[in-house]
Each structure stands twice: as structure tokens, then as C-alpha cells.
Design a protein around this nucleic acid. Structure first.
Ligand SMILES: [Zn+2]
Ligand SMILES: [Zn+2]
Ligand SMILES: [Zn+2]
Ligand SMILES: [Zn+2]
Lengths: 143, 143
DNA sequence: TGTCTCGTTGAGACCAAGTATCATGTCTGA
DNA sequence: TCAGACATGATACTTGGTCTCAACGAGACA
């Protein structure tokens, strides 16, 4: 579910047209190595208009091709996503993201559900830290 | 740490002046029953300018008098806060917020720390659902 | 072939949230 | 009492995103 053809097929299967503008946006998204902002795509996408870029990225989000990523500074980024629901561990120094295997708080949610009678419908979880590479780089520098 | 006098004292103790504008903002914040947006305060605060309201709310956040609350629709609200670090369970129907007693994912963070070598510095967690009152209201209506 | 229809596009207006600027006002401590 | 730091608020600006709307284009159909 990660290259241009696959995404195009998926769109078509759902009745969306695969137009040149959409292809351009999708291609730009797929060639991002790590997470990216809408603006990043906008710059790599001469030819597709602002609105179309926003619309297409929303479409890709709804389709599960990319996932949202809330950075520590509050800005919203995106990231090509293979799996379904998951969360992220973001390095605040180098920006690298590690996907967590599965939702790690389903137990917690069940507990809360039981304790307070809430029916939990959704949640937002992001974790920020420094990866081991960045930590050892700092340690080396301090020496 | 929740009424006007206490907050004023706290500000003074840290070297901030307690000006009429700040008093007005703080009073408006404290009389909010549940969570509120900056705009809510702005409307209840004729006399304090826009910038000052933003500045004062940031000050209160830094002081721990209020905490941030990310709603399901992505908008940022605030809420008077007694305790320190905690998370929220927000009803998507009536908007009521329940504070969770403590950070429920400290175990998870320790695990991740160990597994991946990240030094975790921060995180963001919000839970959305329907409270029991709203659930039974819907159930009654469906009958 | 022409023509209808409907999804799509993109320029630009608009909007919301928040920050920067800066002239002015107010404390406060020497 | 004076200098300097702190605080204010009008307003301009920025950022991130949506809305509008005229125009386009790819079928479907006759
Ligand atoms: Zn790193
Ligand atoms: Zn999850
Ligand atoms: Zn409710
Ligand atoms: Zn926590």
C-alpha cells in the first residue's frame, strides 16, 4: 500500500479519479523519507494548487495511506503509514520517528471504561524523547 | 491555588506585577466552570487587549494554574487545574472533562525507554468518549 | 458526434489562532 | 525624581487551513 500504483488503484476502487494533480501530490508524499508538513509537499508540487494539496492529503489520511503526527511544538505533520492504528515516538533532536507496534493503551482504556462508564471513542497519544543516537552524540560532545 | 488572591500572590512571589488587566483575565479564567478557549476569556474580558489575554493565559499555563486541553476537533482549550501533570477524559457529547488521577502511561514510558534507548522527555495524551450520562440519554431516546 | 453531468481543479478570498511591533503608560529602586 | 524595566493594547502580520466559484474534463448517453 505504499507506491504510486497501489495508491492509485485504491483511489480508483473507491470511485475517486486519479488526476494529474493527485498523482503529483501522491508522488511527492511517497518520496518523503520521514514525516513532512503540508507545506513541504506544496513546495515539491509545482502544478498542484494549495487547496488540492490540502484536499489530497486529507484524502490520503482518510484512506490510511498517511497518518497524522503531532510534533512537540504543536505543529501537525504527516507520515506514510503501512499499518493501521498506532502511535509514535518522536526524537526531539533529530526528528526521527519510531512507530510503536500497536496501541499501547488499550488496557488503560478498558480500565477507564469500566471505572467511569465512558465509552471511549478515540484518543491521541504522542511520545517525545531523545533517541539513543542523539543521546550518545551529546555525551561524546560533552567529553 | 485556585482563587484570585492565591494566584495573585503566586504571581507576585515570582516577580510579576498584578496589574488590572491581569486581574481581569485571571478572574475571567477562574469563573469558567469547565474548559474554555482563549476566545471565551476574550469575550468576558472587556478591557484587557487580545495580546494581554494570550500572554496572561500562557503565564497561567506556565505557572500550572491552568492546563491545556486538546479537543477532539483539534482546537486548544484550557482548564483550571489543581494538580500537577495529568490527562483528561473528554465527553464528545456534552464536553464534560474528567481529570485522570495521575499519568497512566509512566509504566509504558519506562518500557519504551528500556526497549529503544529513548530518553522520554514529554508526551501528549487525551482520551475522547461518551460519558455515562450521555450514553443513557441516547439509549432513552432510542427507546 | 454533440451534449449533460458530475467530480475536480486552482486562484484567491476568507477565517481562526496566535505572534510581533511599538508607542505609550506605570512601577520601582537608586 | 529620574532611569530603566515591566506591562499594555491597537494593529499589523503570519501561519495553517477552508470556502467559493468559474472553468475544465472524462465518461455516459443519445
Ligand atoms: Zn535523535
Ligand atoms: Zn491508540
Ligand atoms: Zn457527556
Ligand atoms: Zn502523562
Amino acid at each position: 500500500m505504499s507506491d504510486l500504483e497501489n495508491v492509485s488503484l485504491k483511489l480508483e476502487a473507491l470511485g475517486y479519479r486519479v488526476t494529474p494533480s493527485r498523482r503529483a501530490v501522491i508522488a511527492a508524499v511517497l518520496q518523503q523519507s520521514d514525516h513532512f508538513s503540508v507545506d513541504d509537499v506544496l513546495h515539491r508540487c509545482r502544478g498542484a494548487g494549495r487547496a488540492t494539496v490540502f484536499r489530497t492529503i486529507r484524502l490520503l489520511t482518510d484512506l490510511g495511506v498517511v497518518c497524522r503526527l503531532l510534533l512537540a511544538d504543536g505543529s501537525l505533520h504527516y507520515r506514510v503509514s503501512q499499518r493501521g492504528h498506532h502511535h509514535h515516538l518522536v526524537c526531539t533532536a533529530c526528528g526521527t520517528v519510531r512507530d510503536l507496534d500497536q496501541c499501547a493503551i488499550s488496557d488503560l482504556m478498558r480500565e477507564l471504561s469500566d471505572a467511569y462508564g465512558y465509552e471511549i471513542e478515540g484518543h491521541w497519544l504522542e511520545l517525545y524523547g531523545r533517541c539513543s543516537a542523539c543521546r550518545s552524540a551529546v555525551a561524546a560532545e560533552a567529553r
